[in-house]
Amino acid sequence: MAKRVVSVSLGSSRRDSVAEVELLGERVVLERRGTDGDLERAVALIRELDGQVDAIGLGGIDLYLVAGGRRYVIKDAKRLKEAARKTPVVDGSGLKHTLERRAVGELAPLIDWKNTKVLLPSAVDRFGLAEALWEAGAKVLYGDFIFALGLPIPLYRLSLLQKLAYLLLPVLTQLPFRLLYPTGEAQEKQVLDWRTRYYAWADLVAGDWHYIRRYMPEDMRGKTVLTNTTTEEDLAFLRARGVRRLITTTPRLKGRSFGTNVMEALLVALAGRELAEADYLRYIDLLGLKPQVLDLEEEA
């Protein structure tokens, strides 16, 4: 009998999908169910799935934001996690911290990080990636103030981002999540304003797909996007803007790359328990998870 993993997402239900995979001798059904930004609907769905599935992923929301060694719990996400009493609920942060950090090193033969300008629209939800890019010597623009708070304050030093995060995250994590991140229909809308100019500066744009897509300008010729959770429709969107290359940190299954929350829930379902960092690294090796590179100019 197949194991079942469901990602309950605050994102649009238009992106829902189902895929069945066989890994390490087990069949697993991966399902993504969007609730169109409705937090109460997401809580109800998690309660309904509790005890009926092997693991639940939280999509379109993070349980934690991280800066340095400190973790801050997002109030709305805590409600979602606590809606399940029996089934493990994960948000992808454990896998992001390991898989995305490792991806930077594995991409070194392809990307000369020391001569690459990287725009990371949101670093506090991908601090492992943010640290790895810094350690690799990339020139990184950490865009948290610009894209999450709408303030024209570009940060180029990880240490400064960390200090500001220590001050602000205890307050920001208590706000309704929709004020910090696009949910539901807002994920489908593009915002072409002063923020798009930071894309022109960058050679590579990395991180959360919805932030990247939301502010992406019409002209992205020659640039690389490093993300995940992309569908065939997203590939068409990137090609139309001239993006040269798409790199996803999670594998493509049935025409899309699933989010880290789905993949993390998949590993938890296979293990039958919640996992520590060493466990994630072991599974990444066992499954041979590596960044997948799509040359969009060749594929066009």
Rank of each mutant, 00 (worst) to 15 (best):
A130H: 01
G128P: 00
I111H: 02
L107R: 09
P152N: 05
A148M: 13
R101F: 06
R126N: 09
H97V: 03
L120C: 11
K139I: 05
I146E: 09
L160A: 15
Q162C: 01
R126I: 04
L120W: 10
E135V: 15
K117T: 11
D112M: 11
F145H: 09
E106V: 08
S159F: 07
P152M: 06
E135P: 00
F147G: 12
R101S: 15
L141S: 07
L119W: 00
L129Q: 07
Y156E: 06
K117F: 08
L155F: 09
Y156P: 10
A103N: 02
L110E: 10
T116V: 11
L149C: 11
Q162H: 13
A130N: 01
L99A: 07
P152D: 09
V118G: 08
A108P: 15
S122I: 02
L149P: 08
W134E: 06
P154G: 11
R101E: 12
A132N: 07
L133W: 04
L160N: 03
I153G: 13
F147E: 04
A136E: 00
Y156W: 13
K139F: 14
D144S: 05
E100C: 15
L161T: 00
G105E: 09
I111D: 08
T116C: 15
G137M: 05
A136F: 14
W134H: 11
S159N: 04
L151P: 14
Y156T: 14
Y156I: 13
F147R: 02
V140I: 07
A130Y: 07
K114H: 12
Q162F: 08
E131M: 05
A103F: 12
V140M: 02
D144G: 10
L129F: 01
T116D: 10
A136V: 03
G105K: 02
L160G: 03
A148G: 10
A138M: 11
L160T: 14
L149H: 05
G128S: 04
E106I: 02
F147Y: 10
F145C: 07
D144F: 11
D144K: 12
D112K: 13
L158S: 00
P121I: 06
P121S: 09
D125G: 15
S159Q: 05
L107V: 09
R101T: 12
T98W: 06
V104T: 08
L151V: 04
V140Q: 06
D112F: 05
G150H: 06
G143Y: 05
V118M: 03
L161F: 02
A138K: 06
D125Q: 13
K114Q: 12
E131A: 14
L133V: 04
L149S: 08
T98M: 14
A123M: 10
D125S: 14
G137L: 01
G128E: 06
D112E: 13
K96G: 02
I146A: 08
L95M: 08
P152S: 14
V104I: 08
L160H: 04
Q162P: 00
D144P: 07
V118W: 14
E106K: 03
F127A: 11
L95W: 10
P109Q: 07
R102H: 12
G150M: 12
P152R: 07
A148C: 10
P109I: 06
L149F: 15
H97I: 11
D112A: 13
L120R: 15
D112C: 01
P109A: 11
V104R: 00
A148E: 13
L110C: 11
